Each structure stands twice: as C-alpha cells, then as structure tokens.
Computed example of a mutant assay.
Amino acid sequence: MLLWTAVLLFVPCVGKTAWLCLQAWPDPVFEGDALTLRCQGRKNISVSQVKFYKDGKVLHFYEGKQTLSVGAATLQSRGQYHCTGQVMYIPQTFTLISEAAMVQVRELFPPPVLSVIPSPEPREGSLVTLRCQTKLHPLRSALRLLFSFHKDGHTLQDRGPLPELCIPGVKGEDSGLYWCEAALEGGQVQKQSPRLEVRVQAPVSRPVLTLQHGPADPAVGDVVQLLCEAQRGSPPIRYSFYLDEKIVGNHSAPCGGSASLLFPVKSEHDAGNYSCEAENSVSRERSEPRKLSLKGSQALSTPTGSNRLVPWLPVSLFGMMVIAAAFLVYLRPWRKAGPLPSQIPPTTPGGERCSPYANGHHQEEKGEGVVYSVRRGTSRRSAGQFCHLCRGEMPAAQ
C-alpha cells in the first residue's frame, strides 16, 4: 500500500514533463496552412478533459477530443502552446500538464510594395506604370499569386497574374491614393501594399497680370498692387514680378492660385512695363507686359533724362544765334568789296546797273566812303517800274 501511494505521488511530476505532450503540424507552418494541435498521452494513454492554451490563455476546452483545429495559420498564430488533461491511474485520476511547444508561423510572402514608373509625380500626358512587387518563400515557390490594383476606394484592375498596370496619358484627375493587393490563389492569404499618393504634374498656363490702383493714374505716395494668376498648373507655383526685365519681388503659392505684390510709388522710376512669371516643376510662363503710368511727373523729386534737358534748351538756342551772328560778321567785309560775279546786275541803257532784286522801298547803307542807293525809274524797254542800284563816291563834307 505504501509503495502504490509513492507511485501515485510521483506520477504528476513525471507526467508534467513526459506523460503528456503537445504536437503541432504541419511542420514547418506557413501562412495559410491549416494548423492543428494534438494533446497526446504517453504510450497513447487516454486523456480526457483536455484544455489548450496559448501564451497562458485558454483557447478551447474539449470533453473528450485530444485534437484542436486552429484553422488557417497567420502570423498572429505564433506563440507558446501547451495543453492539460486528465489521466486515470486506477483508482485515482490525475491532471497532467504538457511541456510548452513554440509554434513558428513562417511568412508566405511579404506585403507587396507599390511603385510608380517613372515617378509618383508624372507629367501630364505621360505613360505611367503601376508595379506591385512581392515574392513567395522559396519553400512555397510553386504556389501562385494574383494581383489587383485600387485607387481611392474603387478597383482599377481585378485579381490577375500580371503584377503591373499601365495608365497611358495620365491627366489631373488621375491624381490620388493608390495601392495594390497580392493574394494567394484560392484566397487564403491576402496582403495589401501601403497607400501611395500619385500627383500628376500639369504645366502652368500663361499668367495674367493685373495692376490695381485708383481710378486715375497713381502718383507719388500711392500704393499699387500687382496681381498675378495662372489659371491652371500643379502647385506649388512660384510667382516673380518684373519691372522692365528687372525683378522686383516674388511670392509662392503652395496650393496654387494667385499671388500679389504691394508697393508704394516712390519716384518716377516706378513707372514702366510690369510683367510676372509663373513657374512650377513642369514649366515656366511669362505674362503680357502691363504699362504703369504716373501722373504729375513734373513734380517728382527725381528728374529723368528728358527733364534735365529742358533748362538747357534756351541756352542752346542762344548759342546757335551767337554762332550765326559771328558767321555774318565774318562775311560782311567780303560783301563790301563788291558783289560776286554771278550777282553783277545787267547794264541799263544809260550805263547804270540795274538790280533785279530791288523793290519799292528805299534803303541806304553807308560805310568806308562808299554809298549805295536805290532809286526808282521807268525802263525804256518796258512799261513797268524798275530800280537802279548806283554806286558813287561819298560827297565831301560841307
């Protein structure tokens, strides 16, 4: 009797390590495999009231079954498993605990990665290829994967063997969030790629520049606003403002739209031809120039080149008059020495020379003892009046 009692006391200790064991199959276990657990007694001894545990928590309780079908294995199926059961040793029943068994579930294939060729920011009108990339485990390379492509909640392509999808001539509406899915044929294992944003880059349109000021032309001290806007184009858009090809300011529109530049008119130098330029990652466009005129330019503090010439205009005219007078003085002695041969008047019947240039007034010039006089007469050859220009010595003083 004492010997039997000693054997019964020893059984639980032995059974804790050898009399009850847990088996998991298949081995190795991959994602999608049907995982089965079996709680077995040593030498196929009958076990009842079996409980299965994972990481210390009860999975299931069976009255008489020693096998548990876990279902399709997933990566979450990894863990430490053990079981408990009752074994009858006449005339007593003992509860035994199996050793822990580590179940490793291998990954059948990693989550796919979606890539966009040539770039997640393609130019409008270009060809785009979506590629879903993953690879089966070498021990399961004979299996078959199917791929599908999705965008913003709707399916672009159902499951098929091709891991690529081509989109010819992308447009602005093709921008959005894309992802792909790889699934084992039969659907036991399905994995999605992370979302990837595709932004189709559209070139900027030619911007329009607007000059905003009062109803009349601005004057010094007034504020002028330059407003530049490109109707289309992918953001961000950088705007630059120019005055006669010289940059005067720039602004960025991160979300697209327009940009403006405010500046006070300081001098006449602020007048001129203004233009703006819109630029994004695809293209660059320049607006038509707009002319800004200022009123009251004569009151501006900074004179321009044309204004500086105004004070010198009378001086220039006076200088020209002085030069002309000096030229006449230079020619005067030559005139008193006698007329040019071409200017000798024809001889009248009386021997006097008649000037064809004389008219009805009387003119007399004196100088250096020579007297010129004009007198009227009647030609014998014509009934009209004519004049004689006679030369004679100056009479002696009385």
Rank of each mutant, 00 (worst) to 15 (best):
82 H>M: 14
330 Y>H: 13
244 D>K: 10
369 G>P: 00
213 H>N: 03
47 V>E: 02
19 W>F: 12
115 S>N: 11
36 T>L: 12
24 A>S: 13
111 P>D: 07
151 K>T: 10
168 P>D: 04
347 T>A: 08
317 L>V: 14
201 Q>W: 00
162 L>T: 08
274 Y>Q: 00
288 E>F: 13
83 C>W: 03
272 G>N: 08
180 C>I: 01
382 S>P: 05
367 G>H: 14
2 L>W: 06
26 P>Y: 04
48 S>I: 05
123 R>H: 12
121 E>R: 15
314 P>Q: 07
292 L>I: 07
97 I>K: 14
87 V>I: 15
273 N>V: 08
25 W>Q: 08
208 V>H: 02
151 K>C: 15
150 H>T: 08
42 R>H: 10
382 S>I: 01
10 F>R: 13
70 V>T: 11
281 S>G: 08
344 I>F: 02
132 C>W: 00
333 P>Y: 03
115 S>T: 15
342 S>F: 01
259 A>K: 02
224 V>W: 00
245 E>C: 07
136 L>E: 03
129 T>C: 11
66 Q>Y: 05
347 T>Q: 06
284 R>H: 05
37 L>F: 10
294 L>Q: 04
265 V>F: 04
134 T>R: 06
153 G>H: 03
387 C>R: 00
335 R>M: 10
148 S>H: 05
143 L>C: 11
217 D>V: 02
113 V>Q: 11
255 C>S: 14
233 G>F: 04
126 S>E: 10
77 S>G: 05
291 K>V: 11
225 Q>L: 12
135 K>M: 09
44 N>K: 11
274 Y>L: 04
253 A>Y: 05
329 V>S: 06
71 G>W: 03
150 H>A: 10
74 T>C: 07
69 S>E: 09
367 G>Y: 06
173 E>H: 14
282 V>H: 04
222 D>Y: 07
98 S>G: 04
